[in-house]
Structure formats: C-alpha cells, structure tokens
C-alpha cells in the first residue's frame, strides 16, 4: 500500500525550477525523512503533497486519491513556519484546526494532547502568551489532533530544546506505531538516521538519494574512518589516501580516497602519533549530505554529536 505516489512532478516559480521531474513512492505505515539543503525543494514538495501548491507537470496521488483535496481530512500538516492565531486561546484554536480537518468534535483529543504535552494549564491562555517551544507543541497538536492517516511535518524539531525534541519524537513514533505514515523534513541528520525507515534527499530540485539508510550507506561503501588520537588534528595533515579530514574536536573523521588502504593509513598515523580508537565504517548521513551538497549546505545541518566509544 502506498501513502504518497509522486510521478515525474515538476514545479517552477518565475523561471526557477524548484522541483524537477521528481518521482517518489512513500509506503504506508513508514517514516520517511526528507533531507536537503535550504532551497532545494523540500517544502515545495511537501506543499504539493498537501495540495497547497499544484504541480506544473506530473501526477500526485495521496492516500490513493488523485483528486484535489479528496484526502484532505486524512492528512495532518505541520508547516515549517508556525501558523497560529495569536489572539485565540489555545483550546478553541486546537478545536478549530482539528474540526476543520476531521469535521467532528475533537474536544476529547485536544484535552488528551494538552495533558500529554503538559499544556493543560495554558489551555485557556492566548497563543501570544506562549513561549516558542509551547507554540511549537501547540502547532504539532493541531496537526495530529484529527488522527491523520498521513502526517507531514516540515522541520518539526527546529528551535526546540532537547526535552521537547524527545517529547515530539516519541509522539511521532507512537503515531507511526499506530499506523500513521509520517513524512518529515529535517536538517537534523542524526534524527533522520534514528527515526526514518526511508530517507529521501532532494538537491537543486532533483532527487539525489532515496532508500533505507543501509541502502544509501551501502552505495558509498566503507570509506570512512573515525578515530581518536593523542596528538591534535594537525597530526593528520598530508596523509596519503585521505580525501578529506573532518575534525569534530573529541574525534576526527577521515574520508578515504578511492582505492586507499585503511591498514596502511593506520600504520602511517601510528608513525606520527598514538591512536586510542580506529574504526573503519560507512559514512554517516551527515557525511553523505555534505559530499552531495557541499560544505556550505552543511552549515545548516547540525554536526553529529556522538563520539566513538
């Protein structure tokens, strides 16, 4: 069963091709991560799935429906930039959004979600009185309160503290476990690696990656060395067989040049400094992202924080 089917879709804005001949299939019941640098076409694709924008060419089928807005009430949407009526109180606002979607009374669901996110005390406060994190949680509730079959989240974790990120992540995974299909775009590669069954990367409007994390990593092979050394990163300068050195402070990551021998590299490093940890592995999603989109795009994507043991 396919939740979203995109066939050869193109969307152009004033001469700029935001999405170029894109085809994608999102299976039902999975978590699908959309990654890509800013301006690469992620949000445009999500908006087309939501039927907020219409493609210039190609076909889109959402939850089996090709007709415009036919599946509207079965799709929940959290936009990249949060959209809440500042003067409305939280509870009526959530009821409005939920009932707009589902066409039924959602009072029970609203109260349950408010309680889950510890927002019950704020239910009768105006949105303008909420903190940014609270607003984001309210926005999330507005997207899920109608119990959608397909949930589309555009940058759901941006600007949230770790506690709220965890709370949101748990909620997303729970919805998925309940049968919902979740599509979310993110710049957080670690979150994408941890949460997504499939990852899709769009770059300059075109699909450049699509598959499971393992499939994607397999395409690049084991060409990445993570190591901890006694000397500083300077000791790795000018090593033969190394295409790129990335210094993360507590550890370093080396991208091997094609055909390079990892054992020879280890010997060369040991000749310069002591080695505490040496691990040959597949590139991280972040690494793959940077190789495709370049270091400028990496600025928007958080570095992986987990160091080798």
């Amino acid at each position: 069963m396919t939740a979203v089917e995109i066939e050869s879709v193109t969307k152009t804005f004033a001469g700029h091709r935001a999405v170029d001949d894109l085809s994608l299939r999102v299976p039902s019941g999975c978590t699908y991560g959309f990654i890509g640098p800013n301006g690469s076409g992620k949000t445009t694709t999500l908006r087309m799935i939501m039927r907020i924008l219409l493609p210039d060419r190609g076909r889109l089928r959402v939850l089996g429906e090709e007709r415009l807005a036919a599946a509207t009430e079965r799709v929940g949407y959290l936009p990249e930039e949060r959209g809440l009526y500042r003067k409305m109180k939280v509870r009526p606002l959530l009821r409005f959004f939920g009932e707009m979607k589902s066409g039924r009374d959602v009072r029970g669901e609203v109260d349950a979600w408010l309680e889950r996110f510890e927002l019950t005390a704020w239910a009768d406060k105006k949105v303008e009185a909420l903190s940014k994190g609270m607003s984001q949680k309210v926005q999330f509730i507005s997207a899920v309160v109608s119990r959608p079959e397909l949930l589309i989240l555009d940058e759901p974790f941006t600007g949230l503290d770790p506690v709220n990120v965890d709370a949101l992540r748990e909620a997303v995974l729970e919805l998925r476990a309940g049968g919902s299909t979740v599509i979310f775009s993110t710049h957080d590669m670690a979150a994408a690696e941890r949460m997504c069954d499939f990852i899709f990367m769009i770059y300059r409007g075109r699909k450049v990656l699509d598959g499971t994390l393992r499939e994607i990593q397999d395409r690049y092979g084991s060409d990445t060395v993570r190591l901890k050394i006694e000397g500083g990163a300077g000791a790795l300068r000018g090593l033969a067989g190394v295409a790129e050195v990335r210094n993360h402070g507590r550890f370093q990551e080396l991208h091997l040049a094609p055909g390079a021998d990892a054992q020879a590299l280890l010997g060369a490093i040991l000749g310069r400094t002591g080695v505490r940890h040496f691990e040959l592995g597949k590139p991280s999603l972040h690494d793959i992202f940077v190789r495709i989109a370049g270091p400028e795009a990496a600025a928007a994507a958080p570095e992986p924080e987990e160091a080798p043991a």
């Binding site: 908006r47 939501m50 039927r51 907020i52 415009l68 807005a69 509207t72 009430e73 799709v75 949407y77 936009p79 930039e81 949060r82 959209g83 809440l84 009526y85 500042r86 959004f97 707009m100 979607k101 507005s142």
Partner: peptide, 17 residues
C-alpha cells in the same frame, strides 16, 4: 494579512481551498 504573515494560511490551505 495576519493569516498570511503568520503562515496560518498555509495550515488552512492544507484543509480548504
């Protein structure tokens, strides 16, 4: 203008034409 500038329209247009 508020619905546009606060991006509420984007949420609503996911529901209504």
């Amino acid at each position: 203008m508020e619905e546009k500038s606060l991006r509420i329209a984007e949420v609503l247009l996911g529901t209504i034409s």
